[in-house]
Amino acid sequence: MTPKATLKRHADLLDRMADQVGVDLQQAAISGAVSLDQLSDAVLRCAECPDPACCARGLAGEGFGGKPPEFCRNREMLGRLRRISRGQS
């Protein structure tokens, strides 16, 4: 897979994971809850995952129970954005 294809794949996985946990990444960026640099870094962290196929299977199936899985390298960021989107700082 080319580097560009890898980044696109992981950007999609990150977006799908965010959707599953109730985070709209576009709205989070517009509101200033996350910067574009932070989103870029999140995609790069995702691309470093040793088993993206597990994530893809989980997202295609029953999901992860509304929370990122323990192995997710963006778990903390997604949790923070979820709390912000629910007004729970």
Rank of each mutant, 00 (worst) to 15 (best):
M1C: 05
P3H: 12
K4N: 10
K4H: 08
K4R: 13
A5E: 15
T6E: 09
T6W: 03
K8S: 07
R9P: 01
H10W: 02
A11L: 06
D15F: 06
R16C: 06
A18Y: 05
A18L: 04
A18V: 05
A18F: 05
V21P: 02
G22D: 04
V23I: 08
A33L: 08
V34D: 05
V34L: 06
L36V: 05
D37W: 10
L39E: 01
S40R: 14
D41T: 11
D41F: 09
A42G: 08
V43L: 07
V43T: 03
E48A: 15
C49R: 07
C49L: 03
D51F: 11
P52A: 11
P52V: 06
R57N: 13
R57T: 12
R57H: 10
G58T: 11
G58Q: 03
L59S: 02
L59K: 04
A60Q: 13
A60Y: 01
A60H: 03
G61W: 03
G61Y: 04
G61K: 14
F64P: 02
F64K: 00
G65L: 06
G66Q: 09
P68M: 00
E70S: 15
E70V: 11
E70M: 12
E70R: 14
C72F: 04
R73N: 11
N74A: 03
M77S: 02
M77Q: 12
M77T: 11
G79Y: 01
G79L: 05
L81R: 00
I84P: 01
S85R: 04
R86D: 09
R86T: 07
G87P: 00
G87C: 03
Q88M: 13
S89E: 07
